[in-house]
Amino acid sequence: MDKYKLTHLKELEAESIYVLREVAAQFERPVILFSGGKDSIVVTHLAYKAFYPLKIMFPLLHIDTGHNFAETIEYRDALVKRLGLTLIVGSVQESIDTGRVKEETGYHASRNRLQTVTLLDTIEKYKFDAAIGGARRDEEKARAKERFFSHRDEFGQWNPKNQRPELWNIFNGKKNMSEHFRVFPISNWTEMDVWQYIYKESIEMPSIYFTHERKVFNRDGQWLAAESCMKLKSGEIVETKQVRCRTIGDISCTGLTLSKAESLEDIINEIAATRITERGGRADDKRSDTAMEDRKIAGYF
């Protein structure tokens, strides 16, 4: 290999750090959207590296559906404490209680879609002008069309047909009052890149990414956590299995993978061998062929 050629992980890291520094330079009130999932953990790690020895100047915003895995919340609180960050929680329960949104009913009820309202309300309340997210283009077909700096109108909406062209490394974050940007520093990373990077940087991860015993049930070929917020249909039985999360979302839409992966090496080997995409376990994407595009237009992550 050429002496002066960065490896793919170094080049991706350099690009993401460049993007995060552009956010700090171009915006007044940026925030990191933190879900407790691996992608937002990597984004937070990159922000730490981008500004060191300065402390990360962005607060973390967690949109809390109230249906979280307990391990996610523990991890979140420990991280905030370790890095000395400010945590803001936008509560979907509060949006329901104040009548901003209506809870879905039925077996497939999920608070995933409701998060959009809570997210936009929180962005407006704190006057955030840039919301930094861990979305990646390889995750999903609508996300494949995203820009690094993605403009949102005053209603928080995305206009996929008329996006600002994004050339070279020039990121245009200019906007009018009450508009905002979504920024995706790890747009060009794949699931494999993320795990390789976590391994290379020895980033501590929430325990639910590794194999553990959990009470689960099977619905339409999908293993879901048997937590109190999940309503079982007749015929669905609760079993105990060795599982791990491949993505972490709200309990209601996070499919669990049967896995014995105990270490980061195991996870990387498992991903190298898998024939199912990472969001193949996400019920929220299966509602229709363009489910993600529709949610994104409305202002979803």
């Binding site: 390889d138 077909k141 494949a144 069309k145 996929p160 047909k161 996006q163 747009s187 363009t290 595009e293």
Partner: peptide, 21 residues
């Protein structure tokens, strides 16, 4: 082809990024 209108018209409208190794 990712966007609804692209699938409907059978053409690519916007730049899409793909990854493989």
């Amino acid at each position: 082809d990712g966007l609804r209108s692209e699938r409907e018209q059978g053409i690519t409208i916007d730049v899409a990024y793909r990854y493989f190794a």
